[in-house]
Nucleic acid binder design. Structure first.
Length: 558
RNA sequence: UGGGGUGUCGCCAAGCGGUAAGGCAGCGGACUUUGAAUCCGCCAUUCCCAGGUUCGAAUCCUGGCACCCCAGCCA
């Protein structure tokens, strides 16, 4: 499925047009994150879109950190983001840039604007600026400092840069139109005074450019042809074009698309931060988080991410993707790559009464039974006492249940047919053990008489089982749209209290002993699991990546 | 009551004047040593609504309606 060509989208259509009419003769994109947090799957969509476009058109892709606010940005995030983009497969080659690389140029351009009477230093307080800005329906008023002389502006701006003034005392603003219907044109702030240490420029600067002043010009400097961003920047585009035009510099084309939203999750940095800081999850890389690190630890692969990005497409319509689509792409990827193994999550002891107590048989079973091209086999030990899944036995089975039950015969995956003869229970009626007899004739899973069994269940030899902890994850929220809450509540009321269930003493087939952290397996009939970094020598830990589709569960009344 | 956007199947999403792609979900069925996977079939006489132009409109025009974004010295 990954070999089919990428479906068209409005961005490709626009680019094709630009290439056809000669506006650009190549494609150069970029991903411009602010290093103030960790990347999530929404960023992945953007990264893959930008990088994918560069690839598709034989162009280039830059990674640029828009580090214009030293109050919020940290080197830790620069490192994390860099690693995440790399993991996704985004390749910026030698083009790793920072908006801070352009601080001097941006400063010179600001002076250029001042000299042309298009920018001025404003002494109004932040609160006053807000009041002077007007509202959505009323025009703003000019600042009393708007008509300072060019000389005075130049002098004041220079002194702002020299550190003569305290934070917040003055700003540099573009002189455009306080009555503009587009709020972005009401004399936007270009520079603010911030005596703060910057992760990259240290204390070299105490005035920092606003994002709007830095972003478009950074793209221009880098020769970006298509500046792809999200919808909320749509009405900033005219401002960026105003800057570019008044500075007389190269003009990229900005194109906006709808950001990603997925059901049963939240995507804003602010909310993700709350989940971490308020302890609803165990860190940014908690496998329940939609962060790249979380998804990676959960068992997602870069290929899954690419297929997902391609499957959802890109458009300008606000939309919320059904998480089942993500899960489908995930399973599709893992089904093809994950070796099979047997693991019993909730063990029920089963004794095969007519099987010799000291015998151990080794069965060869296929590791990729779904793949005709791959006939790799592995060996699993079999003995008299085994564990089966509690769900695979019912004392009083409902109709259509065709796993083990008193008097019923089922196949133990890859080995023998067994029939349940006896159920051992405690005083409370809990099933402690089931006792069965096997048919030696059924070795390998078929019998000479050709009789069929409806159920096939997985198992693990008790004496050989690898004891493990398995973390069973569910959706983080119980509502498709966690933000849909009453006025006096917030999204945390929709948190799923059962999003994590820790199972200990799960019984895994011994082959899993050699699994490495990050290795994925399909525990047959259950789902895909990945070995977690919390594993220790004696105690492996596996995370549930996603369960197999379960049509049996679906047909059960709730 | 300002400006900028968006409205095609339950959810994504192609379509760009020639008579509604595809995926997910769902529903049937086949197959099955994973109730998985795979395979087959079904699933929008209709494109937010109303007019208009045209031989012909989801696509063009006009007028509505709904939803999203903008009033940080955040990005």
């Amino acid at each position: 499925m990954s070999e089919t060509s990428t479906p068209s989208n409005f961005i490709r259509t626009l680019i094709d047009g630009h290439l056809a009419d000669g506006r650009y003769d190549h494609v150069h994109t970029r991903f411009p994150p602010e290093p103030n947090g960790y990347l999530h799957i929404g960023h992945a969509k953007s990264i893959l879109l930008n990088y994918g476009l560069a690839q598709a058109y034989g162009g280039q892709f830059n990674l640029r950190f828009d580090d214009t606010n030293p109050l919020k940005e940290e080197q830790e995030f620069i490192d994390a983001i860099t690693a995440d983009v790399k993991w996704l497969g985004g390749d910026w080659e030698d083009r790793l840039f920072y908006a801070s690389d352009y601080f001097e140029q941006l400063y010179q351009w600001a002076i250029q604007l001042i000299k042309e009477g298009k920018a001025y230093v404003d002494d109004l307080t932040a609160e006053e600026i807000r009041q002077y800005r007007g509202t959505l329906t009323e025009p703003g008023q000019n600042s009393p400092y708007r008509d300072r002389s060019i000389e005075e502006n130049l002098d004041l701006f220079e002194r702002m840069k020299q550190g003569e003034f305290p934070d917040g005392s003055r700003v540099l603003r573009a002189k455009i139109d306080m009555a503009a219907p587009n709020m972005n044109f009401r004399d936007p702030v270009l520079y603010r005074i911030l005596h703060a240490e910057h992760p990259r420029t240290g204390n070299e600067w105490c005035i920092y450019p606003m994002y709007d002043w830095a972003h478009g010009q950074s793209d221009s400097i880098e020769g970006i042809t298509h500046s792809i961003c999200t919808l909320e920047f749509e009405d900033h585009r005219p401002l960026y074009e105003w800057f570019i035009e008044n500075l007389g510099i190269y003009a990229p084309q900005q194109i906006e698309f709808a950001r990603l939203a997925i059901t049963y999750t939240v995507m804003s940095k602010r909310k993700l931060r709350r989940l971490v800081e308020e302890g609803y999850v165990n860190g940014w890389d908690d496998p329940r988080m939609p962060t790249i690190r979380g998804l990676r630890r959960r068992g997602y692969t870069p290929e899954t991410m690419r297929n997902f990005a391609e499957t959802i497409g890109v458009s300008k319509a606000n939309s919320i993707v059904d998480i089942e689509l993500l899960e489908h792409v995930l399973r599709d990827d893992l089904n093809r790559r994950a070796p099979r193994a047997m693991g019993v999550l909730r063990p029920l002891k089963l004794t095969i009464t007519n099987y010799p107590s000291d015998a151990i048989e080794e069965f060869e079973v296929p590791t990729h039974p779904q793949d005709k091209e791959n006939d790799e086999m592995r060996v699993v030990p079999f003995s008299r006492e085994i564990y089966i899944e509690q769900d695979d036995f019912m004392e009083e089975p409902p109709g259509k249940y065709y796993r083990l039950a008193p008097g019923r015969e089922v196949r133990l995956l890859g080995t023998y047919y067994i029939t349940c003869d006896e159920v051992l229970k405690d005083e409370a009626g809990n099933v402690l053990e089931v006792r069965c007899s096997y048919d030696p004739e059924s070795r390998g899973g078929t019998t000479p008489d050709g009789r069929k069994v409806k159920g096939t269940i997985h198992w693990v030899s008790a004496a050989h089982a690898l004891d493990a902890e398995v973390r069973v994850y569910d959706r983080l929220f119980t509502q498709p749209n966690p933000d849909n809450v009453a006025d006096d509540e917030d999204f945390t009321v929709n948190l799923n209290p059962n999003s994590l269930e820790v199972l200990t003493h799960c019984k895994l087939e011994p082959n899993l002993e050699t699994a490495q952290v990050g290795d994925s397996f399909q525990f047959m009939r259950q789902g895909y699991f990945v070995k977690d970094q919390d594993s220790t020598d004696g105690r492996p830990v596996f995370n549930l990546t996603v369960g197999l589709r379960d049509t049996w569960a679906k047909m059960q009344p709730k």
